[in-house]
Write a protein that binds this DNA or RNA. Sequence first.
DNA 1: GTTAGCACTCGACTAAGAGGAGTGCTAATA
DNA 2: TATTAGCACTCCTCTTAGTCGAGTGCTAAC
Lengths: 342, 342
Amino acid sequence: MLTNRQLQILQVIVDDFIVSAQPVGSRQISKKQGITFSPATIRNEMADLEELGFLEKTHTSSGRVPSEKGYRFYVDHLLSPQGINSKDIQQIQSIFNDRLVEVEHIIRKSANILSELTSYTSILLGPDVQRHRVKRFSIVPLSSDTAVAIIVTNNGHVENRMFNLPPDFTASDLEKMVNILNDRLIGVSLEDLHKSLEAEVLAVLQQHIRSADDFIHALVTATMHNSESKIFYGGKTNMFNQPEFHDLNKVRMILDLMETTSQVQSLFHPNEAGIHIRIGSENKQLEMENCSVITTTYSIGDDQQGAIAIIGPTRMDYKRVVALLDVMRLDLTQAFTKNRSE
Amino acid sequence: MLTNRQLQILQVIVDDFIVSAQPVGSRQISKKQGITFSPATIRNEMADLEELGFLEKTHTSSGRVPSEKGYRFYVDHLLSPQGINSKDIQQIQSIFNDRLVEVEHIIRKSANILSELTSYTSILLGPDVQRHRVKRFSIVPLSSDTAVAIIVTNNGHVENRMFNLPPDFTASDLEKMVNILNDRLIGVSLEDLHKSLEAEVLAVLQQHIRSADDFIHALVTATMHNSESKIFYGGKTNMFNQPEFHDLNKVRMILDLMETTSQVQSLFHPNEAGIHIRIGSENKQLEMENCSVITTTYSIGDDQQGAIAIIGPTRMDYKRVVALLDVMRLDLTQAFTKNRSE
DNA sequence: GTTAGCACTCGACTAAGAGGAGTGCTAATA
DNA sequence: TATTAGCACTCCTCTTAGTCGAGTGCTAAC
């Protein structure tokens, strides 16, 4: 158990290091407001805190730097909730000024503003398309052997995919087919779509249409992929500002990671509510060793979720980012639920 | 006019500098195959070439480096067409192995392979959607006051956009409307779409449907934007490999530039056939001072074009990139015209 | 016209030394 | 007993000086 004084010193060190990016020394700490004890005392306490694993030295005679464990403790116990600036709030509100109808635009703008306000990199996941429900199914033939299948979902999202038509497929076949698909599939969520296709629709189609097998097969493969939620980035190069990323290799690894959808997805917690913080190696990715990721989710309508992540150095301004994400999450949720009930 | 010997020396210097990234000295040149004269002679020639503006020194006693004018001369007069490796050809062919139907997938894969083969950054512009023609127009209502307009083009591209419905809009209005739109707009190119909407369709709609004005207005704004051709990137971080980009700021500027659609568009020559090379400051952008951009176009079907750009340092392997782009351009063109006539 | 020779330049690297911020330990103090 | 002043020590950072080597320009010889 840490003493009050130790808590106070740890807090000062983390707070100071977050803004200065320099190891913090005992003399420096002693000059801070609220510190009533001498550098020597502080040195003793720091030695203890280091032994306990909360602090580290960069070399024998350097000041102290928070360890991952130190950040973790700071985040868990020393993070007083902070109000945010009215100017910041105004800027966030500006996202919703434009009466944008489309979810995509709002999210894109949010990503940019978040990265501006934090000066870190933001990643926003759009609604989980998998959970949208089919509103309308249509097929538009392009030539004798290709067609586009189009699915419109209840939220106005449109999926489309080209596929090959079986050779002896007539226009009336197509019409029958579309009718059957619309009869059976409306209301089915995209994630259940190919299950439903195979389970319910296949049999019916086989009765009515020649070469339904081929067709369904083409359709199933077409609907199976390509339904990840879209990813929006803000301030991709913001990390160049941080002194810890003056190393080209680190930056490169992180930028490469952000190009890989699966890696980006794994930054997010699977749909848990609230704000989550992962510090340094708590991220499974090697590339993120020196990064912290703060994530949260927002709601779109009743049953859908999007997610937000902020990526910065472990020396991140946790207090501010948490506060901003909290506002952002609520505002987005509000905007999207209002939007739908209108 | 340059003497033969000067040409030969210039060529050797550029060729050498392209692979070594180090200033080239007279002794080094004298050891090259085909060089029969002494370092002293070479020094004299180099002094002349420098005076003529083809070479530069990094400091008083350094070897020589090609100037922009030097590269330009090299590209215009010394660039012997080069065949490419069968392994490279194989890799390019692999793009078309998968029987991919969708243009987008082929282009995405092409971007990746080009960046791999060149170790520079590639940018591919998809077909100019503006020139697609309307194949089918449909409107799917989502709620009492919102709907999605969907346009399928002759090439299987799907544009969609949400918009607000006027308050007193009935289902039969909608049906009439869709019929009229399909009657009048099929075959119209997307770039002419809002013109046609206003010129031909508006009057007809006003006769048949209440509040057509509002509706058309919503539709026009919906179709006007969002029809830029898609941009695909390959090897965004490849430039980190180049020694000239060990400067964080340069890299950052270029990466930022690549996030800005308008800036990226302006890298391309407006639809001129052939392969174009812009060296250093020949690019209008300040950010591209140290870069060269090689662009070309490929055809999709009969009347549509996509474009390819490779971005690298001015010290780019022009010979190789030009050869690769030439193959790529032809292969893509072939794949896309075959695809359509099938 | 070409080339060997030579003095000179300048970047890259290494070594040495000064300065400064910070530590740990010891002993004195409240 | 907890705190603090004092002090020797460590190690980073910055500067200076010196060496090395690749390269140049110029001059004179071939």
